[in-house]
Each structure stands twice: as C-alpha cells, then as structure tokens.
Simulated assay, not measured.
Amino acid sequence: MAARKKAANRYYSGPPSDHFDGTLFFNPGGRMPGRFVDLLKWQFNGQRAKWPTTSASPFPQARPAAKVEGAELTVTMVGHSTLLIQTAGLNILTDPVWSQRTSPFSFAGPRRVNPPGIAFADLPPIDLVLVSHNHYDHLDLATLKQLKASHHPLVVTPLGNDVLIGEAVPGMRLSAYDWGDRVDLGDGVFVHIEPAHHWSARGARDRRMALWAGFVIETPGGNIYFAGDTGFHDGINYRLMAAKHGGFRFAILPIGAYEPRWFMAPQHQNPEEAVQGMKLCDAVFAAGCHWGTFQLTDEPMDEPVRKLAEALDAEDIPRERFRALRPGEIWRVP
C-alpha cells in the first residue's frame, strides 16, 4: 500500500531547512505538539480551575503619549501578549488582540475577563505590528482589520502568516520572514526574527503550515526581546539570543497557560522557566505576559503571579526586575 501523501502547504512553499521539511515547519531537536487523543485526555481531566467571569485590572485604561523619543522606553500592557512598546519615535504592538474572544467563533471560546489596557481609540499612531504566530490568541484578524483601517502599520510576521493575513485583510502592509532574518526600519532600528519552540494552526487541517517566532528589536537605546509564545526547550533559544545579541535591556516573556505540564511543556513555559530564560538571555528587566486575560489552560488565574514571585525569590532576583504586567499598567523602563 502506497504511503499516504502529505497535504500541500496552503501558506508557504520553499526549500527545506533545519526547521522546514518541505511541507511542514518543526522545532529542531524539539517536541511535537500533542496528539488529538492527548488533547481529549487533557480536556476531560476535570482539573481546570474556575476563573472569575470578570477580573478588573487595578490600573485604569492607559492613554499613551503620541511618541517616546530617543533611548527612552515605555511599555504598556494591553492584555495577554498584546503590549505597546514605545521607543526611538516608534510605536510597536505585539500580537494585537482587542477582540472579546480568542476563537474562530464570536459566540464560543476563551473570553476576555478584563478590558484591554488601552482603548483602541486611544492608541497612538501605530508604526509596526509584530505577529508571532497564527493561534487565535496571537493573530486576531478582526483587530488587524481595525489597525489597517485606522493606522496602516507594517506587519512583520514569520513565513506563511502573511498569506493568511493578506487574504483576510487586503491591502495590509505585510512582510514575512524566516528565522535569522533581519528587517531594517531605519535610524538604527532593526527587527530580528528569531526561533521559538511552539507550533501553529488555525484549524484541524493546517497544523504547522505557518512558522512561529520571537522577535528582537535592536534600538540605539538597547535590545528588546519579545519571545512570542514558547516552551522552554532546555533554554536553547535563550542561550542563542544571548550569544547572538549580547543581552537585553528588556524582555517580554510568557508566564501563563502552562498546566498540565505533561501536555503544555513543549509549547508554554511556566514562571520558573521564564525566570531561567531571563537569566539565560541576560535581560536586565522583563515583563511577564500571556496570563490573566483569557483562560486557556488549567491553572488558577492568579497563580502565575505567585509562582513568578517565588521563582524570583529563589534566584535572589529583585521582584521589580521581572513584573507580571496587568492591563493598563505602564512601565517606563530604566
């Protein structure tokens, strides 16, 4: 009986590489995402913590400055993995999601428990959007349509995601890149597309057809690392970042959506691993993201904050160096 032929990649075609087999992307030396039977085992384990329906942030919705010039760096938390980075006269959004749900459906799926930390109408002019991969809690087409209509930013994303976005948001300024590529934004600012240990899918038939990534923003005021969505992967990518970029003024690292570990470890690091990642990539300051807005996994809503504090104390790292940011919180990074 002939071997079953792989489905063609609907988003990307290119030569094989150390993370692309000619059809699908993969994590070199890493672990594949769980099988469907594993997903069912997790979904029916009965260990899902109950989150509140609403959980207001202690911070009011922020009204950011129009620009932050020079080496100054201001970071504002919107929610989950959406942050506004302002430095060198640029306004940059990471994985922008203003929708109420992270789902293919408007009536079902993970629902936002707190409003965005910046009202969409209060955004400053957005120059650049970084989209790390195509999961619904990171690539939100409704928000990208709004951004295109109101700001017309450049979207930088890993290979394949440009096709998905371009089909849904015609006319959007899109650039797609592979791991190791660099984008010159001018005035000494560059964006590097870097490895993450994750996967991609919008549905059951496009798993690993688009690439996932983290980003390094190289600026005159110092390097900024947005790790995207990632498993710890023995710290391999963190060591690579330190060796390649020589450390970071600031890092944005995921700290939530990590339980149960037997299922989530390949794709989502926990707070203890995030602290190790901060050390390994040599970041002076770090912000914790990917927690407290959408319930994706089993842990209680406030557990990542408690676990982060415990991990920092265990490593004798001052808590003010690694903060679990809440919607509306503004950090003027030293």
Rank of each mutant, 00 (worst) to 15 (best):
Q47V: 03
G34H: 12
V68P: 12
T87L: 03
G89P: 00
F105C: 01
L93E: 06
N91Q: 05
Q61I: 06
G46D: 06
A65Q: 11
T87Q: 09
Q47R: 15
Q47K: 14
T82S: 11
K41C: 05
K50H: 14
F44H: 14
V78G: 10
A62S: 13
W51Q: 03
L40Q: 06
W42D: 09
Q61V: 11
H80A: 06
V78R: 10
K67N: 02
R112D: 00
Q100Y: 10
S57M: 09
Q47I: 11
N45I: 02
F59Q: 07
R101Y: 01
P96L: 10
Q47P: 01
G79K: 06
G79I: 02
F105R: 08
L90P: 00
L39H: 14
N45F: 04
R112L: 03
E69Y: 08
P110C: 01
A71H: 05
Q47N: 14
P58I: 14
A56N: 08
Q86F: 10
E72Y: 04
V75C: 12
G70F: 03
L93S: 02
L93W: 11
L40N: 02
M77R: 13
P60N: 07
Q61N: 12
A62E: 09
E72G: 03
V97P: 04
R112F: 00
A65K: 11
M77I: 05
I85G: 00
Q43D: 10
D95G: 00
V97M: 10
G70Y: 10
L84W: 06
G79L: 02
Q61L: 11
S57C: 10
T76I: 15
Q61G: 04
W98G: 00
G70A: 09
V78A: 08
V75P: 05
D95T: 05
E72M: 11
V68N: 02
L83K: 03
A56W: 09
D38K: 02
L83Y: 02
L40K: 13
K50G: 11
Q43T: 04
T87S: 13
R112A: 01
A56P: 08
R35F: 11
L84V: 00
Q100C: 02
S99K: 04
